[in-house]
Every structure is written in C-alpha cells, then in structure tokens.
C-alpha cells in the first residue's frame, strides 16, 4: 500500500488547514461513569484522520458523537462543544436528521437493508425527497462508482443486497452513505469483519474518497491506520493522549504511552 504523504509532515501545518470538525473540551458520561475526558482536537478537511487505542478507550464513542448517534442511548450526558464547519452540532436548533445527512457513517458490520441494491443506495435520497426519477438513477450510478462497486453490480441492481458478499456489502453501505453527499464520512472499523482482499479494496477506496470527503476512521489495526491515514489520534481510557501526523505517531511518538501501545506493550 502507498503510505500517506498528504503534506502533513508536522503538527503546525495541520493547524493551518481549514478545519472540518472542531472538538472543544468534550466530555461524555454514561450515567455516572465518564467515557470521554475533556477531549479537544481539530479534524482537517479532506484528510483521513484515524482514531486508535485499546478496546474501551472511547474512540468509537467519540466517533459517534460527530453524527449524534449517542442520542439513541439512554442515560448519556455530554459537556463541551463539537463544531462542524463552525456550527455547534449539539445546539438546540440543529435538526439531527439533517446533521446526519452531512455526516455519513459506515459501521463495523455491513448493514444493508433487505431491499434491492438500487433501493439501498437510493434510500437516503428518497428520504430526502425531491430527487426526480432520472436523477435518482444517475446519483445511484455515481455513488456505486464512487464506492468502486458499479462494475460488479450494474447488471443486478434489482436483486437483493443481501445476496452480495461481505466486502461488497460494505462497499454498498459506503455507496449508500456517499449518495446523500455528506461532507464528512465516519468509518467505524469498516474492515474488521472482512477478509484481507476485501480489506484491501476498502483501504484503496478510502484513499480515493479523501479527495472529496473528510474521513474519520476508527481502527484496531495499526498497520491499517499507518497505511490509510494522514493524521492519527491515540486515545487511552477516555483521554486523548496524542494527536499528530501519522508518520510522526508511528515513527517518533512524543508520549511514552503512545510508544508503548504502538510497539505492542499493551492493548
């Protein structure tokens, strides 16, 4: 795999780039226990940012804050601010459904709907409404091409999405997310349930997608983080330990705990 060389050689140059998601002093509690502890970080536009850390460190929880998926869980309380292009996404006037159209998400296990391939991709557009029939077809084709799935499924759009392989399903789910044209794409361990070849395809896809989207990826696999991301954040027990260019994190981490994790001392 090509390693990332997106020009993010050091932290200072990251700060200059325009920020997509700005996290300010963010804390999250499950009931009484604190899962995220005063996290602050800036996620730049059109880059791949990876969250790494041992299980239970809060990286998925943080990711799910960006499209407010944590709203679905009872007994969650939050503190701090998350700004999407300057707008506080937890402000009372924000329409959650609209926010989620701007911040797409792909989950760990492929979760296509029990509908046809076409209907899966068109789902978000149909919800949005106002997309004429002809344009709908164009958008579905475009999305499937973006997800590098078009050639494999163009003759069987009317067939059930459940007949696709796991890797194809995951790319279908990416196409489905891309179809509504979000500005941010959240990937929650998108390849952990897939075989190595499908994983490779997903990683290639991430590379292509970053030209158009801000991508945030949570991964357990450090090689994957090193391969696909421009920046890497290391979280540990709900705290952000270190956030820097991927190259720097993997070659010359500034914190002892980051080095321990990367060299496999725990996690």
């Amino acid at each position: 795999m090509t390693t990332s060389n997106g020009g993010a050689a050091d932290t200072s140059s990251i700060q200059d780039q325009s920020t997509s998601l700005k996290v300010l002093d963010w804390s999250l509690y499950y009931g009484a226990s604190q899962a995220l502890k005063s996290i602050s970080l800036d996620i730049p536009q059109r880059k791949v940012t990876a969250f790494i850390g041992p299980s239970g460190c809060g990286k998925s929880t943080l990711l799910r804050c960006f499209n407010r998926m944590n709203d679905l869980i009872d007994d969650v309380s939050v503190d701090g601010h998350i700004l999407l292009e300057g707008q506080d996404i937890h402000a009372p006037e924000v329409n959650v459904a609209q926010l989620r159209r701007r911040v797409g998400m792909v989950f760990q296990r492929p979760n296509p709907f029990p509908k046809s391939i076409f209907e899966n991709v068109a789902y978000g557009l149909r919800i949005q409404g106002g997309v004429p029939r002809g344009e709908l077809e164009d958008r579905v084709e475009w999305s499937l091409k973006m997800a590098a799935l078009w050639d494999e499924v163009k003759d069987r759009l009317k067939e059930s999405a459940l007949g696709l392989s796991g890797g194809q399903q995951q790319r279908l789910v990416i196409a489905r997310a891309v179809a509504v044209q979000p500005s941010v794409l959240l990937l929650d361990e998108p390849a952990s349930a897939l075989d190595p070849i499908s994983t490779l395809k997903i990683e290639e896809l991430i590379h292509q997608l970053k030209d158009n989207y801000t991508i945030v990826i949570v991964t357990h696999n450090m090689q994957q983080a090193a391969r696909v991301s421009d920046l890497t954040a290391f979280l540990y027990l709900g705290e952000l330990i270190e956030f820097a260019a991927t190259e720097q994190i993997f070659t010359n981490p500034s914190k002892k705990r980051t080095e321990d994790y990367i060299t496999g001392r725990y996690g």
Binding site: M69, A97, R100, F113
Partner: peptide, 27 residues
C-alpha cells in the same frame, strides 16, 4: 431486528418514524 439496521437508516438522515415505516415494519 438487529440494531445495526436501525442505525444504518438513522445515520442516513432518516427520522425514527421514517426508519420504522421504510425498514423496520417491512422486516
């Protein structure tokens, strides 16, 4: 019905009612 399917629909900007009528009830 697995939670992942509900989340998939919600993450695409569907409201709870839309998710219910378009995905959950047919399933």
């Amino acid at each position: 019905i697995p939670r992942s399917v509900r989340e998939g629909s919600l993450a695409l900007g569907a409201t709870k009612a839309e998710t219910l009528f378009r995905v959950i009830l047919p399933m």
